[in-house]
Design a protein around this nucleic acid. Structure first.
Lengths: 214, 214
DNA sequence: TAGATTGTTAATCGATTAACAATC
DNA sequence: TAGATTGTTAATCGATTAACAATC
């Protein structure tokens, strides 16, 4: 199915395809052409065909793509059914919200533990999980073998925690801290969510817009 | 200062430069060369010089860049001191966390109102703000003229809310919903934060890693 | 068969990297 | 002046778009 290494730009587009195709399937659409999908998504048909062909031929000449099948294939590529055991470190504002708001199960992960160094948060219930103290972290990792970690901790704490987690065998990180995980752990799979950076990009856009209207 | 239009790829790197330079300044560093910065950030020196030169010459041949000055210049480009009046729509898990966790003031915005359609949340205190009902939204926008909005609402509600806000004169959106704002409002400045997409990208990476180790 | 649309190759465009002259 | 490092031009690389033959 796969054809060598697929570029990062293509991978970043897959979740969006997956979302659109899920919607279309829910709406009862059976087939769709690359042209029609391109119009709905604001892309070129060429790009869509190129993207899909990185993983092999999902379509049929003269017909297009079967929506349900394509949706499933992309889900498979993304690994949405992997249910990789995952822990969260940091149960502050952001951690709590992420744990409650994100459907990990539908996106390839299973949240099995939440940890915080603040003793006041210990025992707090988040969904079906109870926040544990970081003293329990090592033992938990040894017995439950989580593969991924969500880091919702401030930057100063992140370096040490990351070192620990890597030593416990965790290889994938969803990183909400400002700590540059990838620089210290080049082998880890890291997905950064720098909300502050995103907001500043918006600021740039708004500033430019106002400058143009002056 | 500016030299025509700057590419999106460059803009996306600016907040990271800003962060690193802020750190270096805090550490007391006076000057830095593109080569040294490149090593710390994991980029090429060439790219750094190209990036900075999109906005004019910030450096000095034979010397490098003044850290404090460069930090300030990039902050200015990003508009970190604009304090653009901003409202948030949606005070659920995610909205609450974003409002409490993000320092809007340091990133070009000033959060002046939070709205939710759920009457049970009305009156809830978040930081220095009190959640208002959506009935007050129109009046508030007319009197306080917010320029940006943070959308922390589910997808089904987003289309209608976005239309309203655009009609009230809001031109920049920090969009946490899965609604594709930019497709419907091409003129708006939109920064999407698709947390689910980000998590699925991580899933792909983890899956690939495990495949490789098999 | 004729029409439609893919899969794939070729052309274009843009972004990154390399090289080096300018200059502090 | 000599050494260092920028600003900028040229070369390379990668990603997107266009074109079209293959084929359903």
């Amino acid at each position: 199915m796969s054809k060598g290494t697929v570029s990062r730009s293509v991978i970043r587009r897959l979740p969006r395809y997956y979302r659109f195709l899920g919607e279309l399937e829910k709406q009862g659409l059976i087939r769709i052409s690359s042209r029609e999908l391109s119009e709905r998504m604001g892309l070129t048909a060429s790009q869509i065909r190129q993207d899909f062909n990185c993983f092999g031929g999902f379509g049929q000449q003269g017909y297009g793509y079967n929506v349900k099948e394509l949706h499933e294939k992309i889900g498979e590529i993304l690994g949405v059914n992997m249910a990789s055991p995952t822990i969260m470190i940091g149960a502050g504002n952001l951690g709590k919200a992420i744990a409650a708001h994100i459907d990990f199960n539908k996106r390839g992960f299973k949240l099995i533990g939440i940890f915080d160094s603040n003793p006041e948060l210990e025992g707090m219930q988040i969904g079906s999980l109870e926040v544990k103290g970081t003293a329990e972290l090592e033992q938990f990792c040894k017995s439950s073998k989580p593969e991924a970690a969500v880091l919702c901790i401030p930057k100063p704490a992140a370096a040490e925690v990351a070192n620990l987690l890597v030593s416990y065998g965790i290889s994938a990180f969803w990183n909400f801290s400002h700590y540059d995980l990838k620089l210290a752990h080049a082998n880890a799979v890291v997905e950064n969510v720098h909300l502050g950076d995103s907001l500043m990009t918006l600021s740039y856009g708004l500033k430019k817009l106002e400058d143009e209207n002056k």
